[in-house]
């Protein structure tokens, strides 16, 4: 249930980014959430609504890019797996398994309407 704390941290970091770029109103935030990050995307969206409500970021969209886990055995190569299952060992050879993707919890992009609008955005 730490999605609330994660959402507040996404909001804080996003607002910081906006401030660093001259200030403005948050419109959209893109985050990457890995399958093994112990964060539920659906709960995160609810938490985001609650975190932004009543703030200057109210109405800002949270876009969650879900990253499925990819695991690889150093000797056997990519490991086929069931979605949602954690397979830390490639059992046929017993070698330690590498997690290549799926632990992401990243802030990717922050979109905002600059203060004192009217000028062209500097993309």
């Amino acid at each position: 249930m730490h999605e609330t704390a994660i959402a507040l941290e996404i909001l804080r970091a996003s607002q910081e980014t906006v401030a660093q770029h001259g200030g403005g109103k948050l419109v959209r935030v893109k985050v990457a959430v890995g399958e093994l990050a112990a964060v539920e995307p659906e709960l995160l969206r609810y938490a985001w609504e609650a975190a932004t409500a009543g703030t200057s970021a109210a109405g800002a969209q949270l876009e969650v890019a879900f990253c499925p886990a990819v695991q690889r055995c150093p000797s056997c190569g990519p490991v086929p797996r069931e979605p949602g299952a954690w397979v830390p060992l490639w059992l046929s050879c017993g070698a330690p398994l590498l997690v290549e993707r799926g632990t992401e919890l990243d802030l990717l992009q922050v979109e905002f309407e600059p203060d004192g609008g009217g000028h062209e955005p500097s993309r």
């Binding site: 994660i6 941290e9 996404i10 804080r12 970091a13 980014t17 906006v18 770029h21 403005g24 419109v27 959209r28 985050v31 919890l105 990243d106 802030l107 990717l108 992009q109 922050v110 979109e111 905002f112 309407e113 600059p114 609008g117 062209e120 955005p121 500097s122 993309r123």
Partner: peptide, 16 residues
Amino acid sequence: MSQAVDVRTQVLEANR
């Protein structure tokens, strides 16, 4: 017109 900034940091960067 909105402006988009690529950030690409960990969400928990401040904690890190």
